[in-house]
Amino acid sequence: MSAPILEVKNLQKHYPYKKGLFQKPGLTKALDGVSLTIERGETVAIVGESGSGKTTLGKTLLRLIEPTGGEVHFKGRDITELSAEQMRKLKADMQIVFQDPYGSLDPKWTIGRTLEEPLRTHRSHLSGAALKQEVNAMLERVGLQPHHGERYPHELSGGQRQRIGIARALILQPELVVLDEPVSALDVSIQSQILNLMQDLQTEMGLTYLFISHDLSVVRFISNRVAVMYLGKVVEIGETKEVFNNPLHPYTEALISAIPVPNPNLKRERIVLAGDIPSPRNQPSGCAFHTRCPKAMAQCKTLQPDLKEIGSKHYAACHLF
């Protein structure tokens, strides 16, 4: 097996915040020791509730947010040690598609100009005609026509805009793409089009995806492996099929039991979690999930569980195992 394209080791993002005038500042642990390996060509999904740190993880991997600890090895290089200029150049190889197709395009720029921006930044030698040619080719690749390049974002639909967002991320032919909830702002009918488009492009261009989502049915469809996050930590990770059929962590179990099923007569056990996700400002002691866990034991309150391999390539952080 070849070397993994991305190796994340104990990644941390702690935000200090002021408690009071004379108190020591506290730490908001948005990411608290995340380790993750992504192989070339696969799609790894990150799932979790709002506030679990999944978007922070995606943005920290690209250093759009600077990590406060840990390492990120991209193609064998620790990118947390690169200078700003080295990192800027590396961004041609690692890209991101944003959640909001409305906010992520400059309203004053034509689509063509938006798509030219990555090329002008990283391939400044290209002439005007070559730029236009690349942009038109990319527009066609994401299912649009060259004339869309002359339009402004407000003249396009949400689905078309997200196609532009994808085109902008892929026009430099990156190797790793972080997809930050790329379809959650879209209608369900458009979602499947965009998902299929992303899958086709992955095969065509040999891309590796980190797919961030809270929608488990989408994750099941698109990903090879899935990592479940809770309060800035990965609590379970494994092959998608394995995690969905045989969830280990009680949190994963609860998430999966909440997926709607199309058959109303099918009886199944629904695990309802009490309360909301705790604030990352004052994390519960021991296992962060013990406040809501239906299977919590005495040691969960004091002892933090480590991620252990339980099945084949199936890891979970829980004292039950």
């Binding site: 800027r88 961004k91 906010g103 992520s104 400059d106 004053k108 990283h122 430099l172």
Partner: peptide, 26 residues
């Protein structure tokens, strides 16, 4: 703070170009 500025930073656009191209125009 707009997402299109973050998108430009994600591409690796230089600060001066972001200031001129996106912020000034808007």
């Amino acid at each position: 703070e707009k997402e299109y500025i973050e998108a430009s930073r994600a591409i690796g656009v230089k600060h001066l170009s972001i200031l001129r191209g996106h912020i000034f125009i808007n």
